[in-house]
Nucleic acid binder design. Structure first.
Lengths: 155, 155
DNA sequence: TTGCTCCTCACGTCACGTGAGGTGGC
DNA sequence: TTGCTCCTCACGTCACGTGAGGTGGC
């Protein structure tokens, strides 16, 4: 099937972003496991702006967009703000871009290193939190066990 | 030193809660590692209400209060709402109380079991999140390494 | 009396949730 | 034409942050 069989939606859908390979927000949200509101919010925040829109205004996401949303969902627990995530993803895009000049590259790399360090620290913090959470969950289960026998009205 | 040397603050400080063994919010926040605002917010939310107040209105926390705040801080990552944490801590208090009747006891135990299950599930969820976060942090460090050599302007 | 600590409003923020009312598209 | 999906306001919520202006207490 040649691409000519799939009419493009004018300027709103860039070349190579064939409508047949783009997805509406409902399907995207379902696949990634985020709410419709969250996906729209990430658009409003400039974090993941859909690569296209239909003539009627429906958001259209590419597989690349979906991968971004999935990545964000996976690392959300690191606690970066949406603004920080936006910068981080932007940095990585521009570092692989051939249009980046050498002095700019050094600045980008420096900022990326900052995020790498922060991410590592937050992982350690999360690990401690998880240890405490595990201990607490264990305590609760033991309490249920203990109180389950010998309740005040039981024989 | 007999207790009579430490005058009580009228009704605002219960018996056995000697002023000498109570702590102002600044010391409490510092020791537990929460902001002043957060400790006040937990008071407003009825989550940890200070056991006393000075005549001038200063909050006074017992060691028991501090332990509660510390517990809450440790398990905050489980993502329970303040209202849920309030109920959970209340349940545990009433289960050890001798004033609890048998039918009430069963209801409390049932709700505690619900929290134990929820806590366990959230731990598993947190564990998955941490695995993804670790992988992402690792990816970032590798990217810094890779891009650090062979930047466009380097020899 | 001087600091330092604490107090209560009260508005701001961040990441969404939740309708209300309306339209797109197979 | 009928549904189902999507749209944009716009206000609500949760857990605090952040001053403003005032007072307590050693």
């Amino acid at each position: 099937m040649p691409p000519s069989e799939y009419p493009l939606e004018g300027d709103s859908v860039p070349a190579r972003h064939d409508r047949a390979h783009m997805h509406q927000i409902g399907e995207v949200a379902e696949r990634v496991g985020l709410s419709l509101r969250t996906v729209r919010h990430y658009d409003e925040a400039g974090l993941v702006v859909p690569s296209g829109r239909t003539a009627g205004g429906f958001r259209l996401y590419t597989d690349y967009d979906i991968d971004r949303l999935a990545l964000i969902k996976r690392v959300k627990s690191l606690g970066f703000t949406l603004e920080e995530m936006r910068e981080l993803l932007g940095l990585r895009d521009r570092l692989v871009s051939t249009a980046t000049t050498a002095p700019e590259y050094c600045v980008l790399l420096d900022r990326l290193e900052g995020y790498a360090t922060a991410a590592t620290e937050r992982c350690e913090s999360l690990r401690k939190q998880l240890m405490h959470a595990d201990a607490f969950a264990d305590t609760l289960r033991r309490e249920v066990e203990r109180y389950g026998h010998g309740s005040p009205g039981e024989p």
